[in-house]
């Protein structure tokens, strides 16, 4: 497959990258790992005149954990380094699980979490986990830095809340308390190299009596972007988590999604799998206590 012609630029700093983004505007595309972008270019979906390759920017591939501030993952941190990180596995297991499900070892050695988020696929595994952990994105542009909660980042199908010249520089997950546990499950045909038919992340908070005081459930691959399901969440709050309650939450989650039919599954099947995987994800999170 022949790649369209383009100019490859490799800035040495975020500031320089933003300068290039301002200079070239719509003609340019940012590239971290490129494992989505290069396919779009080969398929003729995108033909940027300029590619701003970010990988030579130093210091943006860190994973930093602080008990008060939480977890900060740089925009160039590779997916494989996230799933292998002890602080991630210990404190944010649903993120480690979601990242591990992405594509293959080779892709995760090149692709980044920020790239997965900015590619904005409705089935992106990592995004559901970021939703329930209440992640936020730090973005930098010509006018400085600002923080965007992940829930506000998607404004439509593949439409990001980034202004011209802005780029994501890191993703932050707030600290997880002792009484909060989360899990991510995806329904796939293969264990690798497969997109989720349905992906569900659930985080539940229990008080000392085992009663749920807060719940966050995010659904992937069943709407134009990842969505929370307030109806299912409200079922859990004020109750003990049992298989019966989890099933009721699953039935409510079905009302909060609008899946499509495609090559992987019909809309009807996805609807039903939202019920099943919401139930399983809630119970998997509860099992972690």
């Amino acid at each position: 497959m022949i790649l369209p012609e383009f100019k490859y630029l490799a800035p040495g700093s975020a500031e320089e990258a933003i300068g290039l983004l301002v200079q070239y505007g719509e003609k340019a595309k940012l590239m971290a790992g490129g494992t989505d972008l290069i396919n779009y270019m080969k398929d003729g979906i995108l033909a940027p005149e300029v590619i701003i390759g970010l990988k030579e920017i130093k210091g943006m591939d860190q994973i930093v954990y602080d008990e008060e501030k939480g977890l900060t993952i740089g925009a160039l941190t590779k997916l494989i380094d996230i799933e292998r990180s002890d602080v991630v596995k210990e404190n944010y297991p649903a993120l480690a699980e979601a990242v591990h499900l992405i594509a293959s070892t080779q892709i995760r050695n090149k692709g980044t979490l920020t790239g997965n988020v900015c590619n904005a696929s409705p089935s992106a595994d990592s995004v559901s986990a970021l939703f329930v952990y209440g992640a936020s994105l730090t973005v930098k542009g010509p006018e400085g830095e600002r923080v965007i909660p992940i829930g506000d980042f998607y404004q439509g199908f593949k439409k990001l809340a980034l202004k011209p010249g802005e780029m994501v520089i890191s993703i932050t997950l707030p600290p997880v308390k002792e009484n909060e546990k989360a899990a991510y499950l995806a329904h796939t045909v293969r264990k690798a190299m497969d997109l989720a038919i349905v992906g569900v992340a659930a985080k539940i908070t229990l008080d000392e009596n085992g009663v749920c005081t807060d719940a966050k459930i995010a659904l992937g691959a069943v709407a134009i972007s990842c969505v929370r399901t307030p109806q299912a969440e409200s079922v859990l709050i004020g109750r003990k988590i049992t298989p019966e309650i989890a099933e009721i939450a699953g039935r409510e989650a079905m009302k909060d999604c609008k899946p499509i039919s495609d090559v992987r599954a019909s809309a009807e099947y996805r609807h039903d799998m939202v019920r099943v995987f919401t139930r399983r994800a809630v119970l998997a999170a509860a099992d972690r206590f």
Binding site: T35, I38, I80, K110
Partner: peptide, 29 residues
Amino acid sequence: EQGECGACTVMLDGRPINSCMAFAAEIEG
């Protein structure tokens, strides 16, 4: 040529990657 089959796997700085999913320009240095 789509990052699916792994026949093109090489190591960049010791990490296995699909060489079809990278540009030659990326290996500078």
